[in-house]
Amino acid sequence: MSGEQPIHVVPPVNSLRMVRTLMLVTSLCGGLIVAVWQITLPAIATNKKVVLERSVRALIPNASQIVEYDASAQGVTAAKGDPADGAVRFYAAYDKNGTLDAIAAEGGARGYTDTVRVLYGYRHDCECIFGIQVTQMRETPGIGDKIITDPAFLKNFERLDVSLTPDLKSLFNVVKTVKHSTKQFGWEIDAIAGATITSKAVGRGINDSAQRLLPMLVPHLEVVKQKGGAQ
């Protein structure tokens, strides 16, 4: 027995020490995250606003003032913080005389690689969408990104019909993307050949957003017109 090597016994792990270390580290990390979040929050909000305003101005060049609103079942109210459940955010663009020029709103749907988000411009006099701006897209370069540049595709949105049913409850016709070169009606979008999935995402995004927004917005359009004049 005396010739045997001594056995090294690993000391038992102190459970309390493990818990204490994890608690300390997570508290330190939590504090760091919250501090940096507080510091960067104003800059992030400003950046998002600038990007959005740039898109709205690109869509509505005559806009001299842009006001954010939320449309909900209760009516139209000035936007504050994030939109409430069921509410849809939209942007009213007024010209230099304070007259409502157009409305812009965002819609999104799953494309080929990720969500495709588009900002669309709406005018009530024609009950139509008159243009789009892609605000988020990670589609295949050279194929899916043609939704930004393809003139024939963009022509679909020069006067896309989004008129409502007489009871103002939904769109009269569902906006939908059809196969390349098969467009027949004003509410159809002619897909880009080879980029059908991305084209369909644009159509679906616009339809979903317009189906929710317009029935809540159109009955209260006067409110938006007056608020613009008052500001």
Partner: peptide
């Protein structure tokens, strides 16, 4: 936890920049 914290920080910083 430590790595994820700094990734979250860099996430906020890039959004701000």
């Amino acid at each position: 936890v430590i790595i994820a914290t700094f990734v979250t920080l860099v996430d906020y910083i890039i959004q701000a920049v």
